[in-house]
Structure formats: C-alpha cells, structure tokens
Amino acid sequence: MHEISIVRNVFQTLEQTYPEKFDRIVKVQVQAGLLSNVQPILIQNAFEALIQEEPSLSDVELEVLLLPIIAHCDACDKDFEVKKHRFICVCGLPSKKIIQGEELQISEVQFSGQ
C-alpha cells in the first residue's frame, strides 16, 4: 500500500542521513501538503504497523503535520492561503499557481541524549 511504502521510505532516508545516530531518534516530523494525496491517518496507521514489525522503532514518535495550500496571485503579486478549497485571491481573481501544498517531506528530527 501507498502509505506503508512512504513510512518505510522515511526511515530509509533517515538511516542514510544519520547513520551514526539513527538509533537515537525519538521523534520525526513529516509535513504533508493538503494537495499531496497523503492521508495523515493512513501514515500514522502504517507507522503503527511498522512498529509491530520492527520493535526497535517503538520508542520513536512519528508526527504528521498538514500544510495548508498556498497559491500565488499574479495580479497582486502576492501569495494567499486557499481556504475551504477556494482558489481565489482577496482581489477576486482565481489562481491555481500553487506555492505550497504538494510537498511531502521530513521537516524535523529529534534525538535522545546529548
């Protein structure tokens, strides 16, 4: 399934990035944009399933943070937040020029000790 491979991928990336202190990770924050097609509940549940497979990860917390959609209005040359799926700037013009909302990334890692 989509989400379980995302979660595995997160920990593979972390293992490559922090080979020395990977086993001291206590918290990982992943940012998912509202346009990323990623469901936080499915990420959390996939992680819970992964813990059962790999007990070494049971001291790790995975936190998913949803990022709002931000679009750019060319007329005003300003960014605006897309609220309630309204891709319309305060000036009234529509825009689908996405600045934020499609990303899926590891945004923070916390380690124990030190």
Partner: peptide, 15 residues
C-alpha cells in the same frame, strides 16, 4: 522518495 526539508541542513548544525 521522501526528502528532508531544505532547512534540515541548518538544524543539523544546531545540534
């Protein structure tokens, strides 16, 4: 591939 956010580099220095 899930990437690290671009500001992770800075955070690494702060460790």
């Amino acid at each position: 591939m899930v990437r690290m956010a671009s500001d992770q580099g800075e955070r690494k220095k702060n460790e």
